[in-house]
Amino acid sequence: MADKLKLAFYWAASCGGCEMAVLEIHEKILTLAEYADILFWPVAIDAKYKDVEAMPDKHIDVCLYNGAVRTSEAEHIAKLLRQKSKVLVAYGSCAIEGGIPALANMSNREGVFKRAYGNEYSTDNPQYVTPQTKTKVKEGELELPEFYDTVYTLADVVDVDYFIPGCPPVPEQTWAVLELIIEGKPLPPKGSYIGCGDKTVCDECPRKKNVKKITKFHRIYEVEHDPEICFLEQGIFCAGPATRSGCDARCLRANMPCRGCYGAAEGVIDQGAKMLSALASVIDSNDPEEVKKIISELPDTIGYFYRFSLSHSLMKRVKIPEEKKVAS
């Protein structure tokens, strides 16, 4: 089969869950191997960057890139794979909207290094040795990629053809997209979100929905909640109203509120602002003082409203006060 489809997979700032999500198509991976050659997949096959560099432009038919862009390496490979691929897909929340790694945008490189390499928690690093882009050793100079202050999305650094959301994307949806590609069926217009819906998670949620009137917020472990009824109605934060459908509300079916991993619903530019709007609307009080009190019980704003989408939000990151910038 000379004209087998040529695929590539890459991971940047991610947890590896997206790799699992691809493997979660189970035995269909064999079907995939029948129709496609996987030319590059750091987690599974032994191909090097230089092998990709040696390819002619547009050699790869489809490349699924997962993970956010937080290092110069991730940016470099994004550009390289863009050049070598006919179709580049942002696969999973991190590539599309920063995902969990983007919560680091509440801090900066210094803050992240301090937490990861400083003498906090279980780390013992009295000299506070941190990764340097260049290190001299007796054999010569060693190089590491640069670690950015801000976590970016894939589309921030290169042109992206399609977006498959989810943390991780659900296997049926992944397969549906791969099947489409294998069968050579026409793909939707460039820039489309595929393998997902265009409504919100609430639309797929099987829970009973009545009138929402919140007088108090609870964290899920604090109350005995009714598994049949909408979480928000019970004062438990759920990102369903502001989150794109496509997951079949599987968290809700497993008795967990939506965390918002499919990102902003269709047509929404800032998932957090929409979530804030929805939440404020259902607080049951017209007295500003009482509202303030109810709001103050929400343990977190950015972590709740932008859990997966901070890099893709209007502000993109938190402003670090001047004094904090110089502290090391």
């Binding site: 804030l276 404020a280 704003t301």
Partner: peptide, 19 residues
Amino acid sequence: YKAMRRYLLLERLLADFGI
């Protein structure tokens, strides 16, 4: 009233953004 509630929550969000 909805505007008031959104505004109060937005104030908190802005502060958390360092704004």
